[in-house]
Amino acid sequence: MTVTAVSPAISAPARLWSGFRSLPLAMRCGMAILALHVFVAMLGLLWTPYPYDAIGTGVGATGMSWQHPFGLDQLGRDVLSRVMYASHIVLYMGLLGTLFGMFFGTILGLLSALIGGWFDAILQRFFEAMISIPFLILGLIAISAAGPRLASNPTLIALVVGIVFLPRVARIARAAGLQVVTRDYVTAARLRGESYPAIVLQEVLPNCAGPLLVELALRAGYAPVLIGSFGFLGFGVRAPMPEWGLMLSENRDLIMITPITTIGPGLALATLVFGLNLFTDGLARYLDRAGLTTAR
């Protein structure tokens, strides 16, 4: 890694701007889309055209109009307001779930690589079993196991997303960790008698950052899709709380009358995933260019 000296004459915003300019185009476009999503999410939290759960704000199951650009659902709730209010719920669940899965997956994967032996063998069998259950099914089981009282809680949904991601992240982290643990600096740390957690945090983790960052972005892009599938199947957050997948299923029966009520939430979901995918694609390219994708 080279550190470029920056002359103090250049102001901080200008430096940030030039740093931003040097990123791959895909990443910049992705960041712009994500910024828009964050803005809408914050706006939706503070203000929506109508309250998200207000019933009968117009004639139910009607299409596009100036008052209701995304139409009205069966109960006469304004779909645009619901899409906007759902934004922060989806972002919260997606982000928390991804971070949870990344955090524990990374720690367990790297420890597995570092400790090896029976610890590694048992953990790998266990993760292998979890991966053999298709992720949607694994998620649905976890939600059912939590019980009806907790089921519609956004934090619980986020934790389930994390549990589904965990074994997959652990596998990537372990593979990246295995390339690092034989290096001299790790051996030196071992000989110094440092504890496993300390070695993982100080020696192994920083040298596996590249692949793990890409994994983080990849998982973040998949989280809204998974959350949407839970909602769509009726296992996610419950009405009146809005969530895009749930809304797609709520308005499925209206598809013959007002297709716009499903296009609205669909558009929100697709653009978020598209932005995250663009960002991931750009990030992978950027790290590749910087030679950071393989563990050093």
Binding site: G228, L248, I255, G266, A270, V273, F274, N277, D281
Partner: peptide, 28 residues
Amino acid sequence: FVLLAIPDYLLASIMLILFVVVIPVLPS
């Protein structure tokens, strides 16, 4: 790349709109 951002349940809804609502040839 664009299609990659469209989850299956959304794709299904889009297909429903296309082939059941816009061009009504298939059952919903």
